[in-house]
């Protein structure tokens, strides 16, 4: 937990932040609207005696009083266990049915399957990962949830090829990058045990490469959502700052009905473009969730 002390200058109520990080996380499921509706899923859960509390900001999210996997609605692919903040980036990207969408770091598929549901399972959704084991998990989640518009590719997202997809640009991309995962500490209490600044700085290089490739593959006027489950500005605002300077894109405002604070423009002697304030930081004490970072970019060239 000492690792998190470096963020004390960024966080208003640091004691509340630390206390939230030490609490376990509620069990949350997202209703899969490819197969059912929230009211039907809720009725099926309650019929099995499972306590259901809707998350106020999103109609298809329920907090359960048990683990999500062993019940009839889960068997039918009506539900997917997904942390509340993990639902944010696909909600922000909000693709339309029939769009062409790239999910750059897709496995194990929580956000991919949510994107498909938002697309009404219509239009091309390309889901990329570079690890076969994780791709296996992605495919099995997609099939259980009834997703039929996803194409799965194994490649390094930094070198993603449009060639199999008729060489046409995407309307939108989701870049939920691999990160140091500091914000998942409530789910994985040992996640910070192997934390090093070298790892943070190394993975930031990968994040910059993936976000740059996403901006390159999206048409002018299309959107790219960048997200991490970490607090480190090196992996968040610094990545945005780099890509704003290297590619034709700008940050845009977006609505988020969860408590949050703006992106930070300075950290440990580094300063970032003023527009990174349009990004949003969600701390665990804000909404009793994991920690998260999310930004929305518009492609301008």
């Amino acid at each position: 937990m000492e690792v998190l002390d470096r963020y004390e200058p960024l966080i208003d109520d640091f004691e509340a932040f630390r206390a939230a990080c030490e609490r376990p996380l509620p069990s949350v499921v997202r209703v899969n609207t490819i197969k059912t509706e929230p009211e039907t899923a809720r009725a099926a859960l309650e019929a099995e005696g499972i306590g259901v509390e809707p998350c106020g900001w999103h109609a298809g999210l329920f907090r359960l009083d048990t683990q999500p996997g062993a019940n009839w609605p889960y068997y039918h692919g009506w539900l997917h266990g997904q942390e509340e903040v993990s639902v944010v980036p696909a909600t922000v990207l909000d693709p339309d049915p029939g769009d062409r969408v790239w999910d750059a770091c897709a496995a194990p598929g929580s956000k991919t399957t949510q994107l498909s549901a938002l697309m009404d399972d219509r239009g091309l959704l390309v889901a990329t990962d570079n690890n076969l084991g994780r791709i296996s998990a992605l495919r099995s989640n997609a099939e259980r949830l009834g997703v039929t518009n996803v194409a799965v590719t194994r490649e390094d997202a930094r070198n993603h090829s449009l060639k199999p997809w008729e060489a046409k640009a995407y309307d939108a991309a989701l870049v939920d990058v691999p990160c140091s995962c500091e914000g998942t500490i409530r789910k994985n209490p040992d996640t910070l045990d192997e934390w090093t600044l070298e790892h943070v700085e190394g993975i930031a290089g990968t994040q910059k490469g993936i976000l740059r490739r996403a901006v390159q593959t999206v048409r002018e006027g299309g959107h790219v959502v960048y997200s991490t489950c970490t607090f480190a500005p090196e992996e968040n605002e610094a990545v945005l700052d780099h890509v704003l300077g290297a590619e034709d894109c700008r940050l845009v405002e977006f609505d988020l009905p969860l408590d949050h604070v703006p992106g930070v423009t300075a950290f440990e002697g580094e300063t970032f473009d003023e527009s990174v304030r349009k990004a949003k930081r969600i701390y665990p004490h804000h909404n009793d969730t994991g920690g998260f970072f999310c930004a929305k970019l518009e492609v301008t060239g």
């Binding site: 495919r139 997609a142 009834g146 039929t148 518009n149 799965v152 194994r154 199999p164 008729e166």
Partner: peptide, 19 residues
């Protein structure tokens, strides 16, 4: 496999819609 989209055939990928 059934795919609720289309692209040029053949295509070398890990998955295309649902088996």
């Amino acid at each position: 496999w059934a795919f609720h989209a289309d692209t040029e055939s053949p295509v070398r990928v890990e998955g295309l819609g649902m088996s």
